[in-house]
Amino acid sequence: MNTTLDRLSPGETATVTALDVEGPQRRRLMDLGILPGTRIRAERSSPLGDPTAYLVRGSLLVLRRNHAGRIHVDRHQG
């Protein structure tokens, strides 16, 4: 199911389909290992839900909601 990364609940996994970010920030996300085809799992959120930690290629990455909201993903069926 198509959605954006910020909408995953902790424990849910998804596959990245597109990055709706341009320029240096797009480059940064890709350097951190987030590109189309990458599997991501939402791990846990801070108390206010922002930022959230994600498991990407074996490491934890912390993303703010405004970044996560620009990462389009295909949510895996639980």
Binding site: D31, G33, V56, R57, G58, S59
Partner: peptide, 9 residues
Amino acid sequence: ATRLERDLN
């Protein structure tokens, strides 16, 4: 070694 895929970038 446990995160080779990421590190090879």
